[in-house]
Design a protein around this nucleic acid. Structure first.
Length: 408
RNA sequence: CGGGGUAUGGUGCAACGGUAGCACGCGUCCUUUGGGAGGACGUAGUCCCAGUUCGAAUCUGGGUACCCCGACCA
């Protein structure tokens, strides 16, 4: 798209009410804007990133048999009373309609999905099944913080799996670990599969933790892959790794970008979700639950991939694949390169602004963080070339304008 | 929810209880054009409610919002 048409603009200064690196950069660059503490609007560039993240997640969920749905945020009180969470869940948003009836804004979707699955799951033949969605969650956090990292309304992928017994659930749980490793590696995040507490439902859970000072969790980890959340760790910094017996355990702050945990029959019990086995005997369904916060993943990527000039997006989630800049005196060649890039199927943002100086264009390109910068100036145009530079690198190379469509 | 801090044009910052100023942005014009250009003119503001005072951006009380630390966080 043409940058001259993009309605958002960059800012030199970060908003005074943002402290975190991810929010400062994303707001300065025009990807997002804070509306309230923990609530952000996503602007065109930000939506493109969220969609890229969403596509990767969808592909990996579909690859392990996930079926996509879209469940409502507005939920009946009675389902929450049935599971006891109307009273026990402190961060549940509750609201009333004109008739004084009460509702919940969904912080998670067991209360909707389990009753829904009762309509369709009756036999062992209907199992296993896995259902997921990308949807906005609402949680009344006591303290929203760190930009996109802890919000009160946020986009989340939540998946729920349904199984005949615990063993089948556990097998699928291992499959999901693989899917999660794929997702985070494709997002450009080194997420450590971390053992964590099971919370109220389960004996254990696994969190996908990305080491960074911006994190609010602390993990104890070894380069061999061992990782435990400090809340359950028995060892300490400097101990020998209990897994590989060679490495030394390190302690680090980290962001939980995803988590998976067994639900067992906690919700199938509450709603009576059962199936008949081969002999016609009824059993409760076993469930697993798997979450990834998309906005939090986006914020984490920025925390991990930036420099003093701006964001450095991994190619997989960048809003565009290439950022074409045309400098004064090369307007015509800029248009030519733009057409060539589009013709080559390259997702390109074209900085065709006439009223921006070269310095501004360079600074904006660095701030936006698109992986490849393609530059046409009077100098390069004379030679019928463009200059291609990767974000985060100093060196550049020249390419023929006509061949720029084959850039990728 | 406990503690600390902040609140001034669209954005970022100044202003002793005494004329609200600077930079960026935005608008018009001129000159510029390989790392956020220069000049001229213009545009726009004290979070809300009370109080003290001759006079409040500034002091006091209350409220609201935001940030940070903690607690909380399927």
């Amino acid at each position: 798209m043409r940058q001259s048409a993009l309605f958002t603009k960059t800012r030199k200064e970060a908003p005074a009410n943002e402290e975190s690196t991810n929010a400062k950069l994303l707001c300065r660059a025009g990807f997002a804007q804070k509306e309230m503490a923990g609530v952000y609007s996503f602007l065109p560039l930000g939506v493109r990133v969220l969609n890229k993240i969403g596509s990767i997640i969808r592909e990996e969920m579909e690859a392990v048999g996930g079926q996509e749905v879209l469940l409502p945020a507005l939920q009946a009180k009675e389902n929450w009373v049935k599971t006891g969470r109307w009273e026990s869940m402190d961060d549940l948003y509750k609201l009333k309609d004109r008739g004084n009836r009460e509702f919940a804004l969904g912080p998670t979707h067991e209360e909707i999905l389990v009753p829904l699955m009762k309509q369709f799951v009756a036999s062992y033949k209907d199992l296993p099944v896995a259902v997921y969605q990308l949807q906005n969650k609402f949680r009344d956090e006591l303290r929203a913080k760190s930009g996109l990292l802890r919000g009160r309304e946020f986009l989340m992928k939540d998946m729920y799996s349904f199984h005949a017994d615990e063993e089948d659930m556990k097998n699928y749980y291992e499959v999901m670990k693989g899917a999660y490793r794929n997702v985070f590696s494709r997002l450009g995040l080194r997420a450590r599969e971390t053992e964590a507490s099971g919370g109220t439902f389960s004996d254990f859970s696994h969190e996908y933790q990305v080491l960074t000072e911006a994190g609010e969790d602390t993990i104890l980890y070894c380069e061999c892959g061992f990782s435990q959340n400090m809340e359950i760790a028995t060892g300490k910094h400097g101990d020998k790794c209990p897994r590989c017996k060679k490495g030394t355990l390190l302690e680090g702050k980290s962001i939980e970008v995803g988590n998976i945990f067994p639900l067992k029959d906690r919700f199938s019990q509450a709603f009576g979700l059962s199936y008949s086995d081969e002999k016609g005997k009824a059993h409760l369904v076993h469930m697993g639950c798997y979450g990834i916060g998309l906005g939090r993943a986006m914020g984490t990527i920025v925390e991990v991939h930036h420099d003093e000039k701006g964001i450095v997006w991994p190619a997989s989630v960048a809003p565009f694949q290439a950022h074409l800049l045309s400098l004064p005196g090369a307007e015509k060649e800029g248009e030519k390169a733009y057409a060539a890039l589009l013709g080559g199927g390259v997702e390109v943002l074209f900085d065709d602004r006439q009223d921006a100086t070269p310095g501004e264009k360079f600074a904006d390109a660095d701030l936006l963080g698109i992986p490849l910068r393609v530059l046409v100036s009077e100098k390069t145009a004379k030679a019928k070339k463009v200059e291609v530079k990767a974000r985060g690198e100093e060196s550049s190379k020249l390419m023929e304008i006509d061949k720029i469509g084959t850039l990728l």
